[in-house]
Design a protein around this nucleic acid. Sequence first.
DNA 1: CCAAAAGTGTTATGTTTACACCCATGT
DNA 2: ACATGGGTGTAAACATAACACTTTTGG
Lengths: 224, 224
Amino acid sequence: MEIKNPLYKNIGAHVISSIFTIDKGKIKVLLIKRNNEPFKDKWALVGGAMYNNELIENAALRELKEKTNIDNIELTFVGVEDSLDRSPLQRMFAFNFIGLVDIEKVNLLKETTKTKDADWFSIDNIPSLAYDHNKVLNQSIEKLKEMIISSNILKKLYPNGFTIPEIHKVYESILGVEIDRRNFRKKLISQNIIIDTNETINFEGKKPAKKYKFNNEIQNKKLY
Amino acid sequence: MEIKNPLYKNIGAHVISSIFTIDKGKIKVLLIKRNNEPFKDKWALVGGAMYNNELIENAALRELKEKTNIDNIELTFVGVEDSLDRSPLQRMFAFNFIGLVDIEKVNLLKETTKTKDADWFSIDNIPSLAYDHNKVLNQSIEKLKEMIISSNILKKLYPNGFTIPEIHKVYESILGVEIDRRNFRKKLISQNIIIDTNETINFEGKKPAKKYKFNNEIQNKKLY
DNA sequence: CCAAAAGTGTTATGTTTACACCCATGT
DNA sequence: ACATGGGTGTAAACATAACACTTTTGG
């Protein structure tokens, strides 16, 4: 039994991933430069068209691997775009995801048959992107703000530990507010969210800063 | 320019709405009994197939109106189901929504050409449903739990006011925890989330209870 | 020695939790 | 008059917010 009425089919789907990282205390997103029409030579979020025999999230993971070499990543679903004309070829849904990576651990492919470049962009300096990717990225940034208030994210962004001034700066820049240094530190320590490693590293200051790690026993605690 | 590769198309979409209401202090969901194959005579959430020239949310609103006569309702997107075999006919995404209605204001259609019955079911007594609707409903209930901790929901469920014992019971039953009566009341009043209307009505007790209404000046305050 | 960032403590205020008795009404 | 649910207050624990000086290091 097959559906004959064309009103009910002939839709496709894009999968789009906003991959974020922290680079020297600044939040950045991964963009690729397209090598094919449509939008040839435009920067874009990482993604492509889903095959109709694969699951949405698997399609997003496959595209990520093909176009950037990133794998072993957890994706979080953000939402769907469904304007009728968002793609010039036919109606395409866009399923949007967020991923977080440690920039040190990524072995980024700069070129593939479908991409001619790939790079990290500060989220306050994003060029004009292909398709509706600027809109999609804004939604992903909003979602990231919701996610960052949950302590879990520390583990994904800083698997090897972090300093308090470092994450303090990240929280302020993502949330867009000032947070008192002393209260921020006190909260993370008194609520056992982070653990002192007894090492020190240099972040931005002359004076080295203590290195902490995320406490695995605390799951998903709301920070702000 | 048209996409030729069948790998990229021939997908359709269902839109599914879990419509909740409060009936005598109990949370209930609206189900319809199907009148057509597949799943003829099975209970199901309200929904149907999206046309490929309409927006997802509009499709959900249209199906709601057609099958239950409910309109003028705000839908909240919950998520997507995408298993390859969730529909017997062809691959169909399912876009799932939540809606909240005042049971007093609904003029429910019990029968249409596509439905032979419609009724409200307590969420702890749900029959076996068509398609993957049991799974979808469970996800919607989880989302409802997230939504109920935001004060905004009071306005939608109780546009005409409510008593504190009434919503206390609803919060306990949806969240599945006990909440101290005194502290619950104190929180809502001291944080100006609700306003005394100086009327009283009977809920469950012999003694009439004070009627309150949601304070429109407070938006989206987290309760728990 | 000094500039620049890291580290630290106290107080006041607000929020949350725990807990027990009286009140108004219908039967 | 009594059973049923509605209404109320206080104290302790905890969380948040505001605020300024000292320490360590590289240059």
